[in-house]
Design a protein around this nucleic acid. Sequence first.
DNA 1: GTCTATACATGGATAGAC
DNA 2: GTCTATCCATGTATAGAC
Lengths: 245, 245
Amino acid sequence: MARPRRSQAREDAKGEFVEAAWELFSRRGYDATPVSAIIEKVGLSKGSFYYYFTSKEEVLDAVVSRIVDEISRAVEPIPSHPEFTTQEKMRSFFRAIGDWKVANMDIIREAAEVIYRDENVIIRHKMNNMVVERLSPALAEIVARGIEEGAIDAEEAEGTAEMILRFFNAMAEMQAASFVAAKDDPAALMRVIRKAELYMAAIEKMLGVSRGVLSPLDADFEERLQGAVSGEGMPREPGLSGERG
Amino acid sequence: MARPRRSQAREDAKGEFVEAAWELFSRRGYDATPVSAIIEKVGLSKGSFYYYFTSKEEVLDAVVSRIVDEISRAVEPIPSHPEFTTQEKMRSFFRAIGDWKVANMDIIREAAEVIYRDENVIIRHKMNNMVVERLSPALAEIVARGIEEGAIDAEEAEGTAEMILRFFNAMAEMQAASFVAAKDDPAALMRVIRKAELYMAAIEKMLGVSRGVLSPLDADFEERLQGAVSGEGMPREPGLSGERG
DNA sequence: GTCTATACATGGATAGAC
DNA sequence: GTCTATCCATGTATAGAC
């Protein structure tokens, strides 16, 4: 027996609001998206919106939470992987984040320009903080294990894990600033990637692991990124990852 | 008898707006401060405000710029200091920033709670970016010199300088998160300071300098911070060479 | 060039009916 | 749970006075 519903029953109205909000925030920005736009998209009224969320900010929290959930799911099993060494776990960890970015490159590329704008710091900020909060435990577990085994040189696993993730966020901010500064310069991307390697190398130094333990993924990531960014895989000059002068 | 100028003569109306804005932003927050509050405080009208600034955001930019100017003035002479070694320059550099924070602790302590709130990320963000932008050149000069002399192990001075400053910002974000998480816990401050040492040690590792080159300032900073935080007036003594004239 | 007064559109949020 | 109607704060624009 079917449950009696109102004319246009919603399976998951709240979810629809979150979905619509993300689409709008990523295309127009947070401040620039009025609640009225969200409700229009969903086809419900303002009253409904405020039935599910106490404020516009709350729907942003939900949006961010949903995104971080995805990354979190990919990262959680890594620390307890039975066969991975500490190095492999670290590499997988960063790669999981990178993979998410690559997998969502089409969205990100479109959203980046918007999200990276000053007015939308609030989005990045909530994302950054949630990444630290939710991903720290898994990374801390890997680091703790690494310290035990002597594979990592650090004093305190949790603080170190948090620090690395915040450093990762700082790297993203660098990318944001670089892209905004030169969004029309096609060479900008390569400069950003080169800078990113500096950051990865810095993490290696922080952890006292040898150079290249974390960064090889970059050479790989770089290719995939390049493909994703160009949209069709333009031919390009070979490796720049290892060289220095 | 002085001719009565319109209401009250203003020497520097624009400066007064900036001053008033900073006082209000730091006490109530950016979003929570309507332009009407700023003009009330100054005693001028909205039209005046928009004569000097094209938007509310612009006055925030001016506020942030003024603050970063202060730090910048303290930092600029350091790279060309004739007698300092690279290590001393680095130490002075970080200390100059620390000193500014200590000197302004009363304001900061009051403002911290407000500034650190999510709604006010925009303030921190603009501050962070401006710090990177304005302080990078000086730090890069120190680093470049250090690389030449073999005192610092890094690949590229400018990128490294920018990275370190962003890392510094990340440290501030950690502090923000920690304070917000436990604002009533008196032990929280010590934990934060301890965490901060982790960050300073990480910078030392990044630069390939020996442990303690940068962090001794922390022991010092810690004391002064402790004094400042406990509410006692602190001896504010810029232990650093040149600054404002 | 500097400022006052005022008008206005936008948009977040609420109340209460169904 | 969803609606309609409404409130009201506030950023911004403008006309015009000194």
